[in-house]
Write a protein that binds this DNA or RNA. Sequence first.
DNA 1: TCTGGGGTCCTAGGACCC
DNA 2: TCTGGGGTCCTAGGACCC
Length: 411
Amino acid sequence: MTAIRRIAHLDMDAFFASVELLRFPQLKGLPVVIGGGRRRADELLRERFTGLPLSEIPPDAFPVLKDYVGRGVITTATYPARQFGVGSAMGMMKAARLCPQAIVLPVDFEEVRRFSRLFKGTIAEIAPVIEDRGIDEVYVDFTEVPSGQLEGGRVLARRIQQAIFERTGLTCSIGVAPNKLIAKMASEFDKPNGISVVYPEDVQARIWPLPVRKINGIGPKAEAKLAKLHLHAIGDIAAQERGWLIDNFGQAYGGWMHDAAWGRDERPVVTYSEPVSMSRETTFERDLHAVRDRAELGAIFTHLCEQVAGDLRRKGYVGKTIGIKLRFEDFRTATRDHTIPDFTSDPAMIRRIAGQCLKRVDLSRRLRLLGVRVGKLAKAETAQAATGGGESASAHRVAEPAPGERTLDLF
DNA sequence: TCTGGGGTCCTAGGACCC
DNA sequence: TCTGGGGTCCTAGGACCC
């Protein structure tokens, strides 16, 4: 007999915030948001409370949103903070208006990554077929795992949940379903610390009533377009002819949307995939101008190139498409890239090509963000060694700026 | 006082080749 | 002089996700 396909989606509950609460248990039950800032909260607080254990620092000594200055968005909000309408990806300043008393802590990436490795390692000991979906999420294929079929996967999900809690003190929510698409939706049904099991025959009752936005792959743009067509629930999409959806959304997207609404998804759980690109970008504390802030901008640019080069080398990759990303004060974005004949991870080469890309952009408006990207990656040991100075053919093919554009030969 | 940083995938036009 | 396709690579922008 063949096993029935059972796929789990596991999502850590308020991950970044929960990791901080392990260190600062006195904040449990309070509205806390994570995001912004460039220094770790424990460093900031340790200066003021020398000698006192972190867990004994009084909650009213922590920085709060109404005192927050600067750019940035919320990475995670605790459930008490969410009661005020504060949520991830929200601008700090807007969040401060909604919940000025919320405690703000910066992200401690090292600590978060450590817990990420811990919880993923814990799952791997129980169910080895795992697909990484970022720092706080994974898909797990239950199909071939002993006990993976019991109660539709609930028994195994419970075991994983308990093992993660014992190892880390953190909770997660799990959805188990016939495929990734439904499992992803199911993991949200009973948050936090819940388990939801969905069977193929449940699609009509449990999936169709949900808003279209709950489908992983339908974002704000597609949602708005669907709303104009009076389609709001997933069931509304399912009720349309496939051909009609294709006429309105294109062959690929329209067809996919029809399948998704009917709960059809055959994508496998992919345990490993090669990276396509690596990049570094930064939003400045204030908008910078190519002329007036030339030195500052130049230093940031060089640093970004060095960081990408460092990332490539640390991970053992080289690339041949080098690009930049700019965001202007009006939030419009421009990208330029250029492909060179030989693979590289050399910071000076990246800097030189990225500098050529920069010259192709009109820099009369002020900038809020600068980024450097390297794509077309290959493993360093399998790619032919980048011959230093092998740029002969490439330099000539860099496109000219559009006529009438003001460019600045700064970099 | 809006709006981070790290990614993937898709589309579409032009170059270039057969 | 006019009229083809198909395939692949490069580049820019945009949607979407965590």
